[in-house]
């Protein structure tokens, strides 16, 4: 499988990364295809009946008790914000 420029553009869009068409796009296309070419070898492995391993540890999840012991520090939440208005985060207006 080899990525064409349109696909690279679509992935970049999904990943929300602006790509410079003249320079970055062709370079990334080449690099991504090298990587995909390398991982192509996995096709030869027979995985019939094999369960996927998703996590680093396949044990049952621990659950915590329903207690309020976090939050309540809006100043800390907002302290790093590049833009805020009052106690809100601010972003360019979204038109829905």
């Amino acid at each position: 499988m080899s990525l064409d420029p349109a696909t690279v553009r679509r992935i970049a869009k999904l990943a929300r990364i602006h790509l410079d068409d003249d320079d970055e796009l062709p370079r990334l296309q080449k690099e991504l295809n090298t990587i995909l070419g390398y991982v192509e070898q996995l096709a030869e492995v027979n995985v019939e009946g094999v369960m996927p391993l998703s996590g680093g540890m396949e044990i049952a999840m621990r659950m915590r008790e329903d207690v309020v012991n976090d939050g309540g520090y809006p100043e800390k939440i907002l302290a790093n914000a590049p833009d805020r208005i009052g106690d809100f985060f601010a972003v360019p207006k979204v038109v829905e």
Partner: peptide
């Protein structure tokens, strides 16, 4: 997200 609180920004709570 609140879109009607500010002229040019959306506000996020």
């Amino acid at each position: 997200s609140m879109h009607d609180q500010h002229a040019s920004k959306s506000l996020v709570d």
